[in-house]
Amino acid sequence: MTLLDVENLWVKFPSRQGVFDAVRGVSFTLGRERLGIVGESGSGKSMTGRAILRLIRPPGIVTADQISLEGDDLMLKSERQMRDVRGQRISMVMQDPKFSLNPVMTIGQQIIEAYRLHNKARKSEAYAKSLEMLEAVSIRDPERVMRAYPHEMSGGMGQRIMIAMMLIPNPEILIADEPTSALDVSVQRQVLSIIDKLVTDRGMGLIFISHDLNLVADFCDRVLIMYSGRIVEVCDADKLHDAQHPYTRGLLNSLPRLDAPCDKLQVLSRDPAWSEAPSVSARL
């Protein structure tokens, strides 16, 4: 069952030196699954996530044959209609919770606001719902956290609160843009397992954007590998380590490994043909 169908997505930025294409003809579908998008900085992975929600600011231009959310083409929607999609049907978690939470509002106020924005509910009902959501992201003592301000939270707590806030309107799709890269390794796992549990329980679709190949291989069902704005390879996550494309192979080999010491790490040599080749379609 397809939740999201993206066909031939382009993101362009006109500049003094000509038009820069950040995303070039990307197509993929998302079902009730965990879809990983990996690539290095500048590969267009974050731009893809933002373009789906039409969050690219001018002068950036988004074009696509279609971005359909259960048959509803987002490209045809007005800005006003898009506001109902964002948060309500598709939510997004960003890299650093420090920049996504309002520093002068308590966490409780922010979660309640997020809920009441999309649901006509009384304050007490929203409060109960928020508490429940904080518990769902395994926050101990949620009543205290509701009264706290973002700066009193650690990075891992902040990110879990963000997830709670994003999931409280019960969206169909969650886009997570490097949700754990600002966190310590031990906290990373915890946050990931929370995302995983919530997504599976609610039957949501997840787009997981990351630069970390191993993380994506562990965590997702299907992986798109992006290079200079295009998808160069699509594979099942458990088969990522047998990937064929030289770029994917190069990325995997350039990681130092504790179990396989070597004098010199393999260095990726970039072939200009990779960025010329047409984007691989990941539509099912």
Binding site: E40, S41, H211, L213, L251, S254, L265, Q266, V267, L268
Partner: peptide, 14 residues
């Protein structure tokens, strides 16, 4: 840095 760049820098340091 990106992992492929990390490999280059680590090799340089070695």
């Amino acid at each position: 840095l990106d992992v492929s760049v990390q490999a280059e820098i680590l090799n340089l340091l070695t």
